[in-house]
Design a protein around this nucleic acid. Structure first.
Lengths: 200, 200
DNA sequence: TAGTAAAGTTAACACCGTTATAAAAGCTAT
DNA sequence: ATAGCTTTTATAACGGTGTTAACTTTACTA
């Protein structure tokens, strides 16, 4: 009596087809456009069947974030093993991380909670530009007063902002398990390192 | 005939009441929970009137991101002026940035497109932990092989990740106007600085 | 073949952003 | 003051969302 076995098999088949259909939508329309009904249409079932395989829509997305971390882990592991020196490994892993992020943009956005639609227009606002100008000016001054005047201030501006934003957003999305006072040390650590490299 | 003047005055009154009501919702329930109907309820008007003041819901949110950048600019300007030395200014601005982000969490999330609900659970998955372990191990090795073995590997792990995530997400959200090849320089710049500080 | 358990369906609930249409209110000119 | 016009506001609707209750169909068992 392989009936329950076959049933189990069919059930997992539907499950994977849900994930496949969902991922198709995410790839072509972005994860914001994913809907239960769209998945149901694609797999040629009615919408409620999806809830026999996943607790909620979030659970489906969560599945993708897990898969994303698996892929990212694979990528950086490969990068690590391409080098023997630990420092070079760290360097290579950074590049692997970067490449993964843009090769699998949708995964990355899900993994780190990125993507408000309104964000695209912000870069063109005067408010953003004013902010950028102030930071840029100070960095320029640090370079001017330092021992390496040939450093590109624009490059350093982006680096500075990225470090700050990275620290904040990783803390904010709750992706690290440490508490607040501790992570302010990380801020000081990173910024001091950055400034040291700037003013030489 | 101050009639049209009064009408203009009343119109702007409704406009600001919309923004106030909207912000109230954002503060108490998060920006995901904001809806046109909720705003309409709060200001005791029907939903369509909102569209005589704002083109769309996104336009309302966009208003807040602009306000957010104004506040952030104010904060870092104040921090800058608390110091005379440019390097110290940059340091103070970083702290100002950090404080702003967590003092005005909702603003920051809107400004940088943060906040997928599913993100909270990720930190508890094995997939995330495995990834963390690999990176942590390499950093530990770099420290061991370097000239400052007393450096905290855990702290550096967070710093490393934050730098990477910051670079990626700022690039991805399109908040900087430069193109891809250029920003890979920023990556190399930041990572090399980080590694130098690590292996001494 | 009757009865039962599983699977899958339709219909509904309570929302959402947005817009077309209709009603009410306010002002102007006779 | 009232008729007519303009502006303002509301109701109703469209097409969508996640999710669940109730019902029907299918598949299997005795």
């Amino acid at each position: 009596m392989g009936i329950i076995e076959r049933r189990q098999r069919q059930k997992t088949e539907v499950r994977t087809s849900i994930l496949q259909a969902a991922w198709e939508v995410v790839l072509t329309e972005g994860w914001q456009a994913l809907s239960i009904r769209k998945i149901a249409d694609a797999i040629e079932y009615s919408a409620p069947v999806i809830y026999t395989h996943f607790e909620s829509k979030d659970a489906i997305l969560h599945e993708f974030t897990k898969e994303g971390f698996r892929l990212l882990t694979e990528a950086i592991t490969q990068q690590r093993d391409s080098q023997t020196d630990a420092s070079r490994q760290l360097e290579a892993m950074a590049e692997g991380y970067w490449n993964f992020a843009f090769a699998h943009k949708e995964y990355y956005q899900l993994m780190f909670g990125l993507g408000i639609p309104a964000c695209e227009q912000v870069k063109r606002t005067v408010e953003m530009k004013e902010f950028a100008d102030i930071v840029h000016a100070v960095i320029q001054e640090v370079i001017r007063a330092g021992s390496q005047p040939s450093i590109d201030a624009f490059l350093k501006y982006h680096t500075y902002l990225s470090i700050l934003h990275g620290l904040v957003s990783i803390q904010m999305t709750g992706l690290n398990e440490t508490v607040n006072p501790w992570s302010k040390l990380v801020l000081k650590d990173a910024v001091n390192g950055f400034i040291k490299a700037l003013d030489g």
